[in-house]
């Protein structure tokens, strides 16, 4: 802790790139990757500080690195010179820290390309830092890039319920892409992750209802739960007839024992 405060002070007062780079990488010698343990008040404080900021999903090391990052003087030209270099030379865990810290950074509008590029990674740890529990993509990504990110999350079987503002960013194009993906999986004789139907739900029409009817003929509890949630939350009335045959699921949804989060969690725990 003393180390961190000393380094932060030095970075802040000198604006030295070298000191900043060295401290940023060497933080791994002083902090481990155990998760932050926060109480309810602290969580609330964090959310009030920056909307959507969820440090309860951060580890100690990335928190320390973010602290150092925020200590660097925020003069635009020098800041980008340093931070670009940091992004370009980062290892896996440094990338994790940098991308997760996007919503806390200055000049956020100028970091959109960086974030979009980050989503091209094949390393789940880095992808997760951008896509999950991070308000940045929903706030800044254009629709096409948002859709690519969500589809990639589906493809990598990441927990979709941890993507922020999903319902607010839902769109017909993404529903269409999700449906195509489901058909591809079915054609290959493979299952579809139940959370996928959340993307379709706001746009239920004849076509999607047919797919969901197929889902509701599954023997798999989680697939049924996902299908039922999509039908239940769809535009009023559309899913009624199909759901009529599943009174238990409907009452579980009404009572809140089945939600996208419970389905996503259970899926991650038992199927991924």
């Amino acid at each position: 802790m003393l180390w961190l405060l000393q380094k932060s002070e030095k970075i802040q007062s000198t604006g030295s790139q070298t000191a900043f780079f060295l401290a940023f990488s060497q933080a791994s010698r002083f902090f481990d990757k155990g998760m932050l343990v926060l109480d309810e008040t602290e969580k609330k404080e964090a959310h009030q500080l920056v909307e959507g900021y969820e440090p309860e999903f951060w580890n100690v090391l990335q928190t320390a690195r973010t602290y150092l990052l925020l200590s660097f003087p925020q003069e635009k030209e020098a800041w980008f010179a340093a931070v670009n270099q940091l992004f370009e030379t980062a290892d896996m865990h440094e990338h994790q820290a940098l991308f997760a810290a996007l919503p806390l950074m200055p000049f956020q509008e100028d970091l959109i390309d960086r974030a979009i590029d980050g989503c091209r990674t094949n390393v789940a740890l880095i992808f997760d830092a951008i896509a999950l529990n991070n308000p940045y993509p929903a706030k800044y990504f254009p629709e096409a890039n948002w859709n690519q990110m969500v589809l990639k999350a589906v493809f990598m079987q990441r927990p979709l319920y941890r993507i922020q503002s999903q319902d607010a960013r839902s769109n017909p194009a993404l529903a269409e892409i999700a449906r195509d993906f489901a058909h591809e999986r079915w054609a290959a004789g493979r299952n579809v992750m139940p959370e996928l139907w959340r993307l379709v739900s706001p746009f239920l029409n004849e076509k999607y209802l047919q797919d969901l009817q197929k889902v509701m003929s599954s023997k798999d509890e989680l697939e049924l739960a996902g299908g039922a949630l999509a039908l239940f939350n769809g535009p009023s009335g559309t899913g009624k007839t199909v759901l009529g045959k599943f009174p238990t699921l409907v009452s579980q949804i009404e009572s809140g024992t089945i939600t996208w989060e419970t389905v996503g969690k259970e899926y991650q725990k038992t199927r991924v």
Partner: peptide
Amino acid sequence: QTKKLSGNSVLRGGQVPRVEGPADRVEN
């Protein structure tokens, strides 16, 4: 290999990942 990789990097489409640990894992 399932946990960390997207389907198009080290594992190519259709390959079954090598997983140590619980044998009841579903390749999905």
